[in-house]
Design a protein around this nucleic acid. Structure first.
Lengths: 336, 336
DNA sequence: CTATCCCATGCAATCGTTTGCTTCTGTCGT
DNA sequence: ACGACAGAAGCAAACGATTGCATGGGATAG
């Protein structure tokens, strides 16, 4: 098919190793030879086979990165952040779309091993025994994103500091004068951390905790709006005097707003609403949503950096990293 | 490092080729030997090297797929559609995030060649000479998605039938009694097709064409909302009696709605608004947007099917494919 | 003038599979 | 009893690079 390094060598009457050295920019080659080789490469339209190179060098410069749900732009931005840094360091990213399926994750990891990836950045929906075993077996450096692995696993991870962020949001709402603040909880590990922060805050300030958990399975997070609606309904029924709601995602917040407006309650005049994520439509007039913004790109970048440190042996066992969040104040929250 | 096929062979006292045949499910192997081999594989935790296999078989089962903009969920769904079919056929997808950069596309194609991809599905922002030359050179089967390649290039493509879809939407609006219908044009190839359909429709029905083109560069399509706002402003100034607007994307439509409401005009009572894409927030109460829905998943799937047909020589030169669209009627459009 | 060293290049093993051919053994038909 | 045949397994040559080591020749030093 395509020309090989041998063809190039033959074409300009040098040995294969010489061509290889030219290709890899070795300096102990006479300029004359180098030029001949370049000319031949051009002429024969030769492109070195990555496959052969991988085999020969026994490393692939390939990093596997899982995307839990390709439809969720959040993850895409994580990925974009990681990609940039890795490419700068000569690595290619191999994406795996998990569609929220643990099974797909397993098969991706199996693939990773067959393909001899140099590293992995994963965002599992759940840390199961099976997953930990698999990671153990494949002998590929791995860092986790957004889902805290069990301490004992030794898998380093990068996430936003949801505890601190929640505290900040609650402080913000509290400083506005709100004392009856509800919280819509996401039934995930992260959700639990935020709930914990929420409850701690309530305890410290001596206000009532009003958290309601939505019952959406982890693989159906796209029904978030409906769930926000239902959660708001519950809150409204159980705690009619609530003046502020902190929802665990913007989508939940929007669902809540839909409910409130349906009931003739004005946001923010009657009740303040805040979310998490700063999705791109959060800034639209109707929503104008106050939200806790996560560092999407930066997370990916940080995870990639961590992985590179491990792969290139700069750091065998890096510290976990919790990135700061920030609160974006818009019109959906208002002074009591 | 990892165990090789040789280790397995040695371990159970057979030849390398025997192990290979077991691995590949050949039938001319005694059951006894096969079992021994399986046991050894298990014991040694052997995983065959894909790299070596690729080199040896001279094919990679890798398909490159470009994503113009990872933040746009539209493309993600294209990808998801393609992925499913390809995986069913034993291919892996290698994604490339182009970030709307022609340069990145070129370097991805170069990569594709080095990696010896078996096929490519690309969605270029523009069909440049440079791009066509590159495709010519790399000798990899390719199909295009969503951007019509020049006829002469011979690159087959899959897209929605924007002409027909636009006609349908215009017919719908017209049937509602609207005769003063404006159109917000996207400055892309697809935009041009829709504009053409729009103008043809106006000519046929004998109504005035009121199309305004937005001036957003192709790499800044995320500013669509601002542009929709400005376009609506232009329309409102130039044609104050307009009663319906068909915007080329949902985001533009939303930008238009923002403008209208700011000016105290009610949608749909004063003016009907329709978009294209059925983005997930189009169905939210405030927007409740009538829209032309494109077949996101199906497009990816169809492109993948076409590519497989070429790769596996079932069809050397497939016909281009235009998928049907459908109009989703919601509350943003109303009878005159 | 020769011993030494360096520069540029070639040789050949290696990476881990696949696969066409050969070889061996035992069975069956005649 | 013997050749033909088939089933099961092995040999060794690919696949297309990389790289440690060997080698040749010219320049330099003593």
């Amino acid at each position: 098919m395509s020309a090989t390094i041998r063809d190039v060598a033959k074409f300009c009457g040098v040995s294969v190793s010489t061509v290889s050295r030219v290709l890899n920019g070795y300096t102990d080659i006479s300029e004359e030879t180098a030029n001949k080789v370049f000319a031949a490469i051009e002429k024969l339209d030769f492109v070195p086979s990555n496959t052969a190179r991988m085999l020969s060098k026994n490393d692939t410069k390939l990093i596997g990165l899982t995307i839990p749900d390709i439809k969720d732009p959040f993850f895409s931005e994580n990925a974009a952040g990681a990609e940039k840094l890795l490419q700068e360091n000569g690595y290619q990213i191999f994406y795996g779309n998990m569609e929220r399926s643990a099974e797909k994750l397993m098969s991706f990891l199996q693939q990773a091993r067959q393909m001899r990836f140099d590293g992995l950045i994963i965002t599992p929906d759940e840390w199961t025994e099976e997953l930990l075993n698999m990671l153990q077996r494949i002998h590929i450096p791995v860092v986790a994103l957004r889902r805290r692995p069990p301490q004992s696993s030794g898998v380093p991870y990068v996430d936003n500091d949801h505890y601190k962020g929640t505290m900040e949001m609650m402080t913000y709402l509290s400083d506005l004068g709100h004392t009856k603040i509800a919280h819509i909880v996401l039934p995930t590990g992260i959700g639990e951390i935020r709930r914990e922060a929420y409850r701690d805050f309530c305890r410290i300030r001596g206000i009532e905790a009003r958290d309601v958990e939505i019952d959406l399975p982890a693989n159906k997070l796209d029904q978030a709006k409906e769930n926000g609606y239902r959660a708001m309904q519950q809150i409204h029924t159980a705690y009619p005097d609530t003046t502020a709601v902190f929802a665990a995602t913007d989508q939940l917040a929007i669902g809540a707003m839909v409910y409130l407006r349906e009931k003739g309650l004005a946001v923010p005049q009657d009740i303040s609403v805040a979310g998490v994520n700063d999705m791109d439509y959060a800034s639209l007039p109707w929503f104008d949503l106050t939200t806790m913004s996560l560092n999407r790109m930066e997370m990916g970048r940080a995870a990639a950096q961590m992985l590179l440190d491990i792969i290139e042996n700069r750091q065998v066992h890096p510290e976990n990293l919790l990135l700061g969040t920030s609160i974006i104040v818009r019109g959906s929250t208002i002074k009591m």
